[in-house]
Simulated scan of single mutants.
Amino acid sequence: MAYPNTEETICLLKKLVQIPSPSGNTNEVITFVEHFLNELNVKTKRNRKGGLIATLPGKDEQNHRMLTAHVDTLGAIVKEIKPSGRLKLDLIGGFKYNSIEGEYCEIETSSGQKFTGTILMHQTSVHVYKDADKTERNQDNMEVRIDEKVHNADDVCSLGIQIGDFVSFDPRVQKTPTGFIKSRHLDDKASVAILLQLIKQIISEKILLPYTTHFLISNNEEIGYGGNSNIPIETVEYLAVDMGAIGDGQATDEYTVSICTKDASGPYHYELRKRLVQLAKDHQIGYKLDIYPYYGSDASAAIRAGHDIIHGLVGPGIDSSHAFERTHQDSIANTAKLLYHYVQSEMIL
């Protein structure tokens, strides 16, 4: 059986993470995905929020499926231009300042100009600040050092940088000889790459799906409302494809597909979960069941918005989420295999 090609998926993932797309500034990456799908002659449309919906017709046009992955990432926005010529940030998404200390970044102005910089503690130099190691990493103490000759706020303004400009983080993506993929923003561009390769596989194999199936590439998930709208009324099952969180007490690892049973929003649909587990068993797919205590997905956002759907959540296991993330090619492959069989399986109607 020919599954979606894992190496092609990883190559696509590398391209995706290198396109800056903090929540609120995702047009460039959505355009990239749009072009990818258009080359496959897949019908797409954008919603008013800027997300992208692709639809593959199925045998049953009365009962639909929807799968979603989000292309928006963590990031920041310029809050203040300091008298020193450095920038104070306000964070986009749920992460901590310590996770971006020392990170290279890019500032994009409203006119489209781009400037590089580094995110640092104001009190970084140990030759000047005695308690540099003890100082709290927070909004007041962290700043962007711009790679331009600026000495004050007026110099920065003359570059065209202003409050409200988006700041993205260098992904630093690498594929190791041992099969690990290290990068920022594997949450959730790993899943986006998996879905795009799945669509490509369906098209290349001329698979007629049992149900009309929509693929939503959402663009506001990190701020809570990426996948809560534009769900066709015919949709019965809604499956979010997002990262599995790894840590103490978690079953998720970097080698299997994670099937979520519950997150901060509550339990996912029990019958759908059991069906996903059975598919994994039937096709010898490595999987783990897990609970994510501080987590929400596009599927849980859809439930909160009042949609009458069966909802589920699966995805590759990602270590160090919302920081320096890592997964393995085996986890990407297992996730792709489960989805390949899921979209061809029967629903309980």
Rank of each mutant, 00 (worst) to 15 (best):
residue 253 D to A: 04
residue 305 A to P: 11
residue 218 S to I: 10
residue 274 K to R: 13
residue 222 E to F: 11
residue 251 A to G: 04
residue 270 Y to T: 06
residue 222 E to Q: 10
residue 302 A to T: 13
residue 299 A to S: 15
residue 237 E to R: 10
residue 219 N to W: 09
residue 214 H to F: 12
residue 298 D to N: 15
residue 272 L to N: 00
residue 236 V to A: 08
residue 288 K to A: 05
residue 261 T to E: 04
residue 233 I to E: 14
residue 262 K to M: 13
residue 259 I to D: 00
residue 307 H to K: 10
residue 268 Y to I: 04
residue 313 L to I: 05
residue 261 T to V: 11
residue 279 L to S: 01
residue 307 H to L: 07
residue 239 L to D: 00
residue 213 T to P: 01
residue 261 T to F: 02
residue 203 I to G: 01
residue 231 I to W: 14
residue 268 Y to E: 01
residue 254 E to D: 03
residue 290 D to M: 06
residue 225 Y to K: 06
residue 287 Y to R: 02
residue 251 A to Q: 05
residue 233 I to M: 06
residue 220 N to H: 10
residue 271 E to F: 07
residue 302 A to D: 05
residue 237 E to S: 14
residue 284 Q to G: 08
residue 234 E to Q: 13
residue 220 N to A: 09
residue 250 Q to R: 14
residue 231 I to Q: 01
residue 229 S to R: 14
residue 231 I to P: 00
residue 241 V to I: 15
residue 305 A to S: 15
residue 219 N to Y: 09
residue 267 P to R: 02
residue 250 Q to I: 11
residue 303 I to A: 07
residue 216 L to M: 14
residue 262 K to I: 07
residue 295 Y to A: 04
residue 205 E to N: 12
residue 303 I to L: 11
residue 272 L to W: 11
residue 293 P to Q: 04
residue 301 A to C: 12
residue 227 G to S: 13
residue 256 T to A: 14
residue 282 D to L: 09
residue 236 V to I: 12
residue 209 L to M: 03
residue 217 I to R: 01
residue 227 G to D: 13
residue 309 I to K: 00
